[in-house]
Nucleic acid binder design. Structure first.
Lengths: 228, 228
DNA sequence: TGAATTTGTGACCAACCTGTGACCACATCA
DNA sequence: TGATGTGGTCACAGGTTGGTCACAAATTCA
């Protein structure tokens, strides 16, 4: 699990970095906005710790940039504690907000809380949905009365994401992010992948299928045979 | 969307309650740990605002109890700012942590951030008006005895704006701004969009429809009996 | 190495979204 | 009376989105 730490305070960056490493993360460092962006694009970390006070490109701008490209969780870091900043930061899509000074333990706790929420950490094994069981090891999916179906990596990732969020509609960009990682895919690829996955899992009984919500994304739905 | 507010400070509880209501929540109140638990079990709120200083059963214990039963997001509230408390709270499964004093805006921002993260997402959920329910995820609107209607982005935005302000007449320019953003649309487009939206949502029963107020704008009204 | 599979790309088509202009009805006002 | 403005309806065109297919490039595997 990679974490990108962006802070121009070298000492603090070092402390954070040390703390995260001890908690099991690979840490990438950046000391200004431009570097941060390059690092992010190049390495695709799973979480970003972002100081708002940066030389050159502002932290909020970096946050905006990242959000425009991906759903990667962002924890903001700042000495400023004004409500405006908190509201702005969270409004821009940051996932959490820590004010300095803070303890390493608190940082780690918040990082883990965010990762738990975004579902990137510790996925439950053997997902199932509407009589469909996913086997993460073999990348197979089983449905009652049917032979197990072998999926490819991408197909499985897509289905897994849909099942993990079976209660909601997944926006196109979110799906692209989850399947290919930040900066990885595009709409055409997703379209193609959905097509391939459907061919494999949508059988005669049509218990489960993938519904397109025009202009938004896709969602998993049940019992399609209700038309009449 | 229901929120459970647990705080033995009656004044503060009132302030929070007022703030959340204004943001579109139904608010449940509890002033001690035992009541909190009963409320939670009975009403199953979508989010909990939990003060740690409680008479009787401790806030951390309430948090533990709730977590043992459900994944409902919890935001902790306390004057104590020790790292221990933060770490404990987050470790127990709280989703966020606000230290008093705080501003209403910050509270709402954090609530929204948490809900966004947990996928319960964006406020206010499931707007409804006169038996008509809006589903923001799918851009659909449902009316009793009718199939859900799929709206486009613009149509949904327009209807959402009207429903959110169902008590007042929305001036033409205001609507244009809300739907297309600043500098985005014009009167002709709005006229066209209203026409299209009407075709989709005005059914035979005519429970709800969009009324034009000449020279001013549009308003949502309930059928004062259809002119036959 | 060569074969099979997976993945990316372009193409085509249908359906849909949305902006635009046209036409009409109606009310207001000089 | 006619000019003007507002709102409702319609038809049309360009753009976009989603589904399908074929094929090439990349990858995996024997």
């Amino acid at each position: 699990m990679k974490a990108l730490v962006v802070d121009d305070d070298l000492v603090l960056a070092d402390v954070i970095s040390f703390t995260l490493r001890r908690a099991g993360f690979d840490v990438l460092l950046a000391h200004d906005g431009e570097t941060a962006w390059e690092r992010f694009e190049g390495e695709m970390p799973e979480i970003v710790i972002l100081d708002l006070e940066l030389p050159g490109k502002d932290g909020l701008q970096v946050c905006r940039d990242i959000r425009s490209k991906s759903d990667t969780p962002i924890i903001m870091l700042t000495v400023r504690d004004s409500d405006e900043d908190v509201v702005n930061g969270l409004g821009l899509g940051a996932d959490d907000y820590i004010t300095k000074p803070f303890s390493p333990a608190q940082l780690v706790a918040r990082v883990q809380a965010v990762l738990r929420r975004t579902g990137q950490a510790a996925l439950p094994r053997n997902l199932s949905y509407a009589g469909m069981r996913l086997n993460p090891d073999r990348h197979t999916v089983e449905q009652a009365d049917y032979e197990p179906v072998q999926l490819t990596q991408l197909e499985f990732k897509l289905l897994e994401t849909l099942v993990l969020n079976s209660t909601q509609v997944l926006p196109t960009n979110t799906l692209i992010d989850r399947v290919w990682g930040p900066g990885g895919g595009d709409k055409a690829m997703l379209k193609q992948l959905v097509y391939r996955l459907r061919r494999k899992i949508e059988n005669e009984s049509n218990e489960v299928f993938i519904e397109a919500i025009p202009g938004i994304g896709y969602a998993l739905t049940q019992s399609h045979g209700k038309k009449s």
